[in-house]
Simulated assay, not measured.
Amino acid sequence: MRQAVPGLAIERLAVTWASDDDNVYFLGVGSVPDLVQFDTGPDGQPPFLVETDHCRAVTSEVAEAVAAVSAGLGSGDAGSGDDLP
């Protein structure tokens, strides 16, 4: 993802209590830090939930998650062989 999206910023949700929200990330570009919300199962495993202001995708396939994140960031350069950040 970092190669396909120059200036990619990734922030992990910081929680101070035991929660299912330990695997929530916000991805953005430049001055827009939260274009995409990306949730994973424990230890970064599927299922993946990708949300933007305009769409929501749930998948267990890495390639589909990468494509959804890429679309949310406005980059169409990610392919099925690309990996998640």
Rank of each mutant, 00 (worst) to 15 (best):
D22I: 07
L49W: 07
A18V: 10
A71N: 07
Q45R: 15
F26E: 08
F48I: 02
N23K: 05
V15N: 11
P85I: 01
S70N: 11
Q45W: 05
S80W: 14
L27P: 02
A78I: 02
F38I: 01
P42V: 10
G28E: 00
S75R: 06
V24A: 08
A78W: 01
V58P: 00
S70H: 10
A9M: 09
V66Y: 01
S75A: 11
S80F: 15
S31F: 10
D20K: 11
T59I: 06
P6S: 14
G72Q: 01
P85R: 06
T16P: 05
P42H: 09
T59W: 03
G79L: 03
T40H: 03
D20H: 11
G28L: 00
G7C: 06
S31P: 07
C55P: 01
L35R: 15
A14Q: 13
V50E: 03
F38Q: 01
V32F: 07
L73I: 01
V36L: 01
V15R: 12
L49M: 08
L84T: 00
P47W: 02
I10C: 11
V58Q: 12
M1H: 13
A78F: 04
A65T: 04
D22T: 12
T52S: 02
A4N: 12
S75C: 08
A14R: 14
A18S: 11
G72E: 00
T40N: 07
G44D: 03
V36W: 03
G72M: 01
E11F: 14
A65G: 04
V29L: 02
G30Y: 04
V24F: 03
V69Y: 03
T59Q: 08
E11A: 15
A65H: 04
A67E: 10
T40P: 00
L73V: 00
